[in-house]
Structure formats: C-alpha cells, structure tokens
C-alpha cells in the first residue's frame, strides 16, 4: 500500500486551494489512450485520488471497461509536482450500492462528501471563457493508487511511491 506525501496531498486539490489542474489518462481495453484535464480533484485516505465525474465521455467509457489509469499534474509543474500516479479506478455513480467498496473506499462516504463538488468547491478561479455554465455531476471517480513514478527531467521513470 502506498502512502501519499504531504506535498502530494497539497498538490492533489482543486487549483483554487493551491492544488493543481490534473490530467486523467485512461485507455480502452485494446489500448487506445485518452487524456483529459480535470479540475475537481482531492485525496482520500492515504492512497486514493478522487475526481469529479463531470462531462466525462471517453474517460468514463474507458474506466467502465478497463480500470487501469494514470493521473499526473498538468499545472503547475514548476513546484516539484513531477509525478505520475498509477492505479485502478472506478466511477462511483449515483445509484451505486451504498455499501460498495473500492479498496477500502466506501461509496456512501465518497458520495456524501464529494457528491456535490461544484457547490463545495466552486470553480471561482476558472476563466470566464472556459468555465461551464452548469455543472452536472454524475459521480466520483476513485483511483486506488498502487505506484507512482517521476517525470522530472533527469529522473523520469524513477519510482516515487511503491506498494
């Protein structure tokens, strides 16, 4: 089991709270990669990354057929946030059995705390020509992180977290 560092937990929050814009990388079961930027991000326990299911299309389809994902920091990169987190993801949608468990993360706990994310952490820092007029959240993607490697120039591929 991995354990996020303090710096990782600080980075894996919404940008408006000093966190980061992240990239969520998924793949179809036959290896067609997909990369999409996400704003609503948090950590849960010591090894889970949470991402709001808003506007997910291919990402959602990929996770439903293949749980293998990678999460990395898109911006800012110049604060030592050179990490790629790898693990297995599930999209805990509304309607999931409330006792559903994903590597120790409980659906009731997740949806109660992060199920209305736009209200809890509104996207005040997002530019007006980018921000969405109405957020419709369908669930929370829970990534169980199993390892992480560096993408810092000169250290790319080095393990920074191992299970």
């Amino acid at each position: 089991m991995v354990k996020f560092t303090k710096e990782m937990k600080e980075a894996l929050r919404v940008p408006g709270k000093g966190g980061s814009l992240i990239y969520l990388c998924t793949s179809s079961r036959d290896g067609n990669p997909n990369i999409a930027a996400m704003r609503f991000v948090a950590t849960h326990m010591d090894d889970k990354i949470l991402i709001a299911d808003m506007f997910l299309l291919k990402t959602k389809a990929n996770i439903k057929e293949n749980p293998e994902v990678a999460v990395t920091i898109c911006h800012p990169l110049d604060e030592g946030r050179w990490w790629v987190f790898k693990g297995k993801a599930v999209d805990m949608e509304y309607g999931f059995p409330r006792d559903f468990d994903w590597y120790g993360a409980n659906a009731t706990d997740i949806l109660n705390e992060w199920g209305n994310w736009n209200k809890a952490e509104p996207p005040d820092e997002v530019p007006p020509d980018i921000v969405f007029p109405k957020a419709v959240q369908r669930g929370v993607v829970v990534v169980h992180v199993e390892e992480a490697y560096s993408i810092e120039p000169g250290h790319v591929g080095e393990k920074v977290l191992t299970g």
Partner: peptide, 18 residues
Amino acid sequence: CHLCVATPEGVPFVVLGR
C-alpha cells in the same frame, strides 16, 4: 505536452514532451 501511450492491454503511461 503531456504524452499518453498505452500497452495493447490498456495500461497507460505518461511522459512530458517538453
């Protein structure tokens, strides 16, 4: 750019294209 590739079995990897 952030570059994403995946194995034929669907395991993604990312590196930077600086």
